[in-house]
Amino acid sequence: MSLLSLTGVRREVPLPDGSVLPVLTGVDLDVAPGEHVAVVGRSGSGKSTLLNILGLLDTPTAGAYLLDGEPTDRLRARRRARLRGEVFGFVFQQFNLLPRRTAAENVAAPLLYARGRAFLTRGRAAREVLDRVGLGARADQVPERLSGGEQQRVAIARALVRRPRVVLADEPTGALDVETGARVMALLTEITAETGAALVTITHDLSVAALAGRRYRLEAGLLAPLDAPADLHAATAARTGTGLVGTGQVGAVPPGEAPA
């Protein structure tokens, strides 16, 4: 059974002039446990909207979203919040670390909303995960003192500290240079694979998408498989490590949009 299942999901947002903007017009997507799925799409295509719906931060206007086979449209706000904390870990483009709180405090923060042992042992858990992302030595530093790549590694540690079943990453490399981005992505892929968490990555970057087992393009509010030969070339290049910034992207990215 799918862990996450979207069927015919539509999302419309009301505009100030009274009209509605259809962002998602009929998205079907299934994510199995431990799977890595990538979604690419141009800016404004609704990628973040899709991810927010998956993470129970937003609700579809129409269509079904089943989590563990259970419909999510009837969930009460409290239970939605609980599930959000327990099932998902979020990684944002802008890292979104809590300012002026140390790396360890940031990583422990999600456990403030956990119960029982997880809450009480949050400090130790945070340090363990920080060790895993290679920042054990920087645990007591505030994010303002860390580089972008290090901040995103802290964010990854934070997304993983509650042992989520799904990690939702919204352009995790968007604010990083290509090389750092590649290393952060490699870490994220590796560590989610280790913990058995599914990973849904949203990206502009085809080389990032290439790391995923399944790839989609979001266009005109619909998801379509991303398997044009050019894309495969990029994916192969990424996998073999011969070129993280493949020229193949030129063909895959619609004109007028530059990769981040």
Binding site: R78, R82, E86, N96, A109
Partner: peptide, 13 residues
């Protein structure tokens, strides 16, 4: 923004 981030951790209203 911080509150939004906490929401993503599962903080209820």
């Amino acid at each position: 923004r911080e509150i939004g981030v906490r929401r993503s951790f599962g903080a209820g209203s």
